[in-house]
Write a protein that binds this DNA or RNA. Structure first.
Length: 424
RNA sequence: GGCGAGGUAGCGAAGCGGUCAAACGCAGCAGACUGUAAAUCUGUCGCCCCAGUGGCUUCGAAGGUUCGAGUCCUUCCCUCGCCA
């Protein structure tokens, strides 16, 4: 079997790793974990890299553990945060843990006899520590000097807001997690994003001091977008894994719209395609960039992974209707199926009677424009489309005759923002 | 608590009594060009309407001076630096 280390290296996933990790992978079946913060009830694609990485290691015969941070979430990781976090209530955290557990489960195989995956909640042990015991058993092994040197702490020390004692302690909890998993499951590797290096090495230290064993760490690089925008953010907001928050269609579109400069890296990061397959896409990208085959494959693979193959089919069908076919020839039901995810507004049929509704009013009313003035400007500049036909006339009115099957009108602003008007 | 600097549209930043709904840059939005890309270019970017040498509400807050205030005065609030 190929060495997972080489695989990760080829994929550009190793930002930093402890000495001897490659040998460890070669020598034995490794149990490794990654922690996920329950800051929301759904994970977003920022976490996707780590989920895929866990799944990848399982495919290589190693045993993954995903931690839902129900315990650490009570405290808040200062890493990468410029300001103190607002604490979530225990109820919120519990609800969030349940949400992300379901998403994590999708990526892991719990039934592999040789190397089953595990999904645990660190509240199971962290919540039951008593303060004195914790200070004696864990706190004693870290000097404040050491903790102050951590970048996450240091940066906050220099800021005006400082860092609370609570968040300062976070490091100890995560170190304790690693020790706990080491004891329970023989977990010897912790992975994470590059901002986790400090937390990970603290855990390695603790295991070394208390168990006299060598544990390892590996961190992945920060995923960037060539456009300079933070990865996973779009005009429309964060790309979530939860289909209720980000429809599979928008999810697919996010990946499909990947910049040429990013697409190869993303194929390596987020798909299980092997070297030959990716090489082929690299040459297609060079010879026929307009085909966007690499983006298409990326979107297909990742959407299938997160939402299932049937959602890929639906997203592709929706895309073709949205961008090329003449929408007015479809039946109302087909249009609805394609745009199921798109926001919609119901408007009583009688408002479309007589002279109908003014286009400008309608655009403002369904919030495609923030105000009527903005709606006017939008129409004047040719940015409004009804059923994929541009409407540039300020006086334009919409009547029931314009509705597809007498039931719906597809309004679009620019190339990407669609809104369905349902005639009720 | 003392001294100094400052609070202008999403952000940054001009403005120093009328020509200010407020220069300029960024972000945003739309258009052109394209490959549902990037870059570039154009327009737009407080609200309302009967769309005009139109109306209304804005420049930390409240008062005041003035024919007229983002611009001057008073008080208050907040932010940032230095001192204690």
């Amino acid at each position: 079997m190929a060495n997972l280390f080489d695989e990760l290296q080829w994929r550009g996933l190793i930002f930093d790793a402890t000495e001897g990790l490659s040998d460890l992978f070669a020598r034995e079946r490794v149990t490794a974990y990654i922690g996920f913060d329950p800051t929301a009830s759904s994970l977003h694609i920022g976490s996707l890299l780590h989920m895929v990485t866990l799944a990848r290691m399982q495919r290589f015969g190693h045993s993954p553990i995903a931690i839902a941070g129900g315990g650490t979430g009570m405290i808040g990781d200062p890493s990468g945060k410029a300001k103190e976090r607002t604490l979530l209530t225990p109820d919120e955290i519990n609800a969030n843990v349940e949400g992300i557990k379901a998403q994590l489960a999708r990526f892991l195989d719990f039934d592999r006899a040789a190397n089953p995956a595990r999904l645990v909640n660190n509240a199971d042990w962290l919540a039951s520590f008593d303060l004195l015991g914790f200070l004696r058993d864990t706190g004693k092994y870290f000097t404040v000097n050491y903790m102050l040197q951590k970048e996450s702490v240091n940066r906050r020390l220099e800021s005006e807001d400082g860092i609370s004692y609570t968040e300062f302690s976070y490091l100890l909890l995560q170190a304790r997690d690693f020790l706990e998993l080491f004891d329970r499951y023989g977990c010897t590797l912790q992975m994470g994003g590059s901002d986790q290096w400090g937390n990970i090495t603290a855990g390695i230290e603790l295991i070394r001091k208390l168990r006299a064993k060598k544990a390892h760490g590996l961190v992945t690089p920060l995923v960037t977008m060539a456009s300079g925008v933070k990865f996973g953010k779009t005009e429309a907001g964060t790309i979530w894994l939860d289909p209720e928050r980000t429809s599979p269609f928008r999810f697919y579109q996010f990946w499909f719209n990947t910049d040429d400069r990013d697409v190869v890296a993303y194929l390596k990061y987020f798909t299980f395609l092997e070297r030959a397959g990716i090489d082929a896409l690299v040459s297609t990208l060079a010879s026929a960039p307009d085909k966007r085959e690499a983006q298409r494959v990326l979107a297909r693979e990742v959407t299938a992974l997160v939402h299932g193959a049937d959602q890929v089919t639906r997203a592709e069908r929706a895309s073709s209707v949205l961008f090329s076919e003449d929408i007015a020839t479809l039946t109302a039901d087909d249009v609805l199926a394609v745009f199921e995810d798109v926001p919609s507004t119901e408007i009583p049929a009688d408002e479309f009677g007589g002279a109908g509704l003014a286009m400008v009013d309608l655009v403002a009313r369904v919030q495609l424009a923030a105000s009527k003035s903005e709606a006017r400007r939008l129409v004047q500049s040719g940015g409004v489309y009804m059923n994929n036909r541009r409407i540039a006339d300020l006086q334009a009115r919409i009547t029931i005759a314009d509705a597809i099957g007498g039931r719906l009108v597809v309004l679009r602003k620019g190339q990407k923002q669609t809104h369905i008007v349902r005639v009720a």
